[in-house]
Nucleic acid binder design. Structure first.
Lengths: 213, 213
DNA sequence: GTCTATATATGGATAGAC
DNA sequence: GTCTATCCATATATAGAC
């Protein structure tokens, strides 16, 4: 515990503590709601050190946002471009995004909020930085092939992806509404989301298989 | 144009202009992102007058939030408690919430964001003020009756409502993500949401009718 | 690298004239 | 009711000692 030393580990520790604290607070309160003082307190250092390491609130925010967006979107790409068939991919996507949202309930609200509050130019820049722009080409071809074979009915990829993400993520961001408007408690909510890991893939897949009209 | 007069109409006009401007700006930027100066500018008056009419930013925000929440949640109640059967109600809910979200794209993000950023006590107070707490009893009974008759398979109301709202609202709040991550332009987005007025009820209703297992 | 102290800017709110 | 001018608290950011 030789605290006087200025070892690289000490330096790293402070920088990481700041980043960890900033991540928590930005995600919970958003860019505008977060306070540098609060981040400093949570990191156990003072405001001056924040600026020493990250120069400004905007830059610190960018770091947090990019990392959050990467965490959120990288799974999408991984699953879409794997070697699995469409049904496995759908099941994996549901499981991944329900788990991700339940375990990090602030991330979806954070990303959605900031994306809707920022200028297009900023969002574009952030996305380029995350390097997670998903490639739908493989998935699209799989869907077309399956439709051509009569295995499923034709479906536009963006509709399908929105269906999956909406069904998996929306309940998490609407949780307060469910609490106050529908009387769903914490335990019921957890149970409900667990049920949805089974219900949502079933719903999505059955809708593809039905021969209607 | 006798501007010197202090008629009640003049007074009303200013108050309403403020409320209109505040509504727009709070919805777009959120409670923390909104600036009283900006609201004053948009209303064509100065900051002092904001406080004259609404006392504080918090009170002005409450007015806007309550009115927005009322607009958003009142449709839910209306439809759930109407005399229609469950299939008509589902179709109406989809149509209503797609239209509402497309026409007022900031409202869902606004309500969701503020509900996730506020204390439970505040949210609770706001909801009491809106007087729009939905009553699911009729809808629940209808679902149970239909299931008992074998018309549909059993389904929990809160799952069903989340499915509907998620499928209708999520694409709107995820619009920036679709733009930058999936290359969906403004025209494609509008067309997509129009398609969903047909696709979503079809998806929901078919999932209820299927006899699986 | 880390701190204390301080500069600077900004935003919400009030005082007081008209 | 409406304005200008100003106060005051808070927030980001910097200077400079250690």
């Amino acid at each position: 515990m030789v605290k006087a030393e200025q070892s690289p580990e000490q330096s790293m520790a402070a920088e990481e503590r700041i980043l960890k604290a900033a991540t928590t607070i930005f995600r919970e309160k958003g860019r505008e709601g977060a306070r540098m003082q609060e981040i400093a307190d949570a990191a156990g250092i003072n405001k001056a050190l924040l600026h020493y390491y990250f120069r400004s609130k905007d830059l610190l925010f960018e770091r947090v946002f990019i990392e959050s967006a990467r965490l959120f979107f990288s799974r999408l790409n991984e699953i879409l471009q794997s070697e699995r068939d469409i049904f496995q991919k759908i099941t994996q996507l549901c499981d991944a995004y329900i788990s991700l949202s339940v375990e990090n309930p602030f991330i979806p609200v954070f990303i959605i909020g900031e994306m809707n509050h920022s200028q297009d130019i900023f969002i574009s820049k952030m996305f380029t930085a995350t390097q997670t722009r998903p490639d739908f080409s493989i998935f699209r071809e799989q869907l077309q092939a399956a439709a051509a074979e009569g295995m499923i009915r034709p479906v536009a990829p963006h509709h399908l992806i929105m269906n999956i993400l909406g069904l998996c993520i929306f309940p998490v961001i609407a949780k307060p509404m469910m609490q106050f408007n529908m009387g769903i408690g914490e335990k019921e909510f957890i149970a409900m989301m667990e049920e949805r890991k089974r219900l949502v893939p079933e719903l999505i897949i059955s809708s593809l298989k039905i021969e209607k009209k």
